[in-house]
Design a binder for these strands. Sequence first.
DNA 1: ATTAGCACTCTTCTTAGTTGAGTGCTAACA
DNA 2: TGTTAGCACTCAACTAAGAAGAGTGCTAAT
Lengths: 343, 343
Amino acid sequence: MLTNRQLQILQVIVDDFIKSAQPVGSRQISKKKEITYSPATIRNEMADLEELGFLEKTHTSSGRVPSDKGYRFYVDHLLNPQSINPQDIQQIQSIFNNRIVEVEQVIRKSANILSELTSYTSILLGPDVQRHRVKRFSIVPLSNDTAVAIIVTNNGHVENRMFNLPAGFTASDIEKMVNVLNERLIGISLEEIHVKLEAEVLAVLQQHVRSADDFIHSLVAATMHNPESKIFYGGKTNMFNQPEFHDLNKVRMLLDLMETTSQVQSLFHPKESGIHIRIGSENQQMEMENCSVITTTYSIGEDQQGAIAIIGPTRMDYKRVVALLDVMRMDLSNALTRTNRSD
Amino acid sequence: MLTNRQLQILQVIVDDFIKSAQPVGSRQISKKKEITYSPATIRNEMADLEELGFLEKTHTSSGRVPSDKGYRFYVDHLLNPQSINPQDIQQIQSIFNNRIVEVEQVIRKSANILSELTSYTSILLGPDVQRHRVKRFSIVPLSNDTAVAIIVTNNGHVENRMFNLPAGFTASDIEKMVNVLNERLIGISLEEIHVKLEAEVLAVLQQHVRSADDFIHSLVAATMHNPESKIFYGGKTNMFNQPEFHDLNKVRMLLDLMETTSQVQSLFHPKESGIHIRIGSENQQMEMENCSVITTTYSIGEDQQGAIAIIGPTRMDYKRVVALLDVMRMDLSNALTRTNRSD
DNA sequence: ATTAGCACTCTTCTTAGTTGAGTGCTAACA
DNA sequence: TGTTAGCACTCAACTAAGAAGAGTGCTAAT
């Protein structure tokens, strides 16, 4: 168990290092007004804190730097909540000023503002399209053998995919198809569609239309690889500002990681509510060993959910980011649930 | 007018510098087997070439480096066409192996392969959606006051936009609307839609439905800012490989530029056919003063056009990139015109 | 329990010297 | 007259040595 003095010193070191990015020395600490001990005392305490794994040295005679464990402790126990600047709040709310109908626009804007306010990189996950429900299904033929299938969901999202028509398929065949499909698919979530198609719908259609087999298979193939949640980025190059990323290789690896959808998606799991912080080596990806990721979720409509991630150096301004995310998630949720009530 | 010997020396210098990225000295040149003159002679010629503006020195006693003007001359007069490696051709053609219906997939793949083969950054512009023609127009109501408008084009592209319904608008109102709109809009290109809407369609509708005004205005607002051609990137971080981009600031500016849609679009103007090369300071953007851009176009269907750009350092392997783009544009055009015949 | 004092460590910055690749110019040569 | 060998000179890049400064750990005094 840490003594009060150790807590205080740890806090000062982390706070200071977050600001300055320079190893913190005993003399520097003792000059703070809330500190009443001499440098020598502080050195002793620091030696203890280092032994406990909360601090590290960059070389034998340098000042101290928080370890991942140190940040973890700081985040868990020393993070007295910060209130944010009214100007910043106003800037966040400016996203919602003009009455907007497009969810996508709002999220895009949010990503930009978040990266601007934090000076880190933000990633926003749009609603999980998989869980939208079919509102209307339609098919538009383009030529003799191709057509485009369109699914409108209850939230106004539109999915479309081209597919091949079986030979000799007529316009009236298509019409019959669409009618049956609409009867059977409305209200079904997108992730269930191809199951439903292959099981139930196929049987029904086979009685009405020839080549139903081919048609359905073609359709299933087209809807097979499911739409993923859209990803929006803000401030992709903000990390260039951070001294810890003055190394081209690190930056490159991070940027490449952000181009890889699967990697980005994996930043968000598990998608629980509340604010989650992963620090340095707590991340699975080794490209992220110098990064911290703060994630949270927001709601879209009644049952949809999106997610937010802020990526910065482990020397991140946790206080501020957590506070900002708190405001952002509330405002976003409110705005998107208000404008986007479904049915 | 340059002498033959000067031409030869200029060519050797550019070729060598493209390979090595190191200033080329007279001794080094004289060792090439195609060169029969002594270093001293070469030095004299180089001094002349420098005076003419084709070469530069990085410092008083360094070897020579091609200037932008030097590259320009090289590109215009010394670029004997190169044939590319069968393996590379095969890799390009692998894009089209599996029978694909989705244009977008093909383009995305092409971007990746191009960046891989060149080790530069590739940008591909999808078809100019503006010039697609309306195949079907439909409206799906979502709630009492919102609906989504959907336009399917002759190429199977789908545009959709949410918009507000006037108060008290009924399902049968919408049906009437859609009928009229389909009568009037089919065959119109997307860029003409809102003109057509406001002029012709509005007049017709006012006779049939109340609140037609509000409706049309809402619709116009939604379709107002026109869809831009989709942009696909390949190898965004490839420039990290080039020694000229070992400077964080340059890389950052370039990456930021590539996030700005308008800037990227402007790389492609004027969108003429053939292969165009812009070298260093020939680019408008000053972020690109160390870059060269090679652009070309490809066709999609009968009357659609897309564009390709390769961005690299001015010390780019022009020969190879030009050759690759030649193959790529042909193959892409063929593939997309074959699979995508409209109507 | 705290702190002043001190020897020691390590980074960072500066300075000076060395090496090597390259140049321009002059004079000799074919 | 065009070509080339020779030579003095320049500059970047590397190395080594020294000084400054911030910081530490330890010991002994308070």
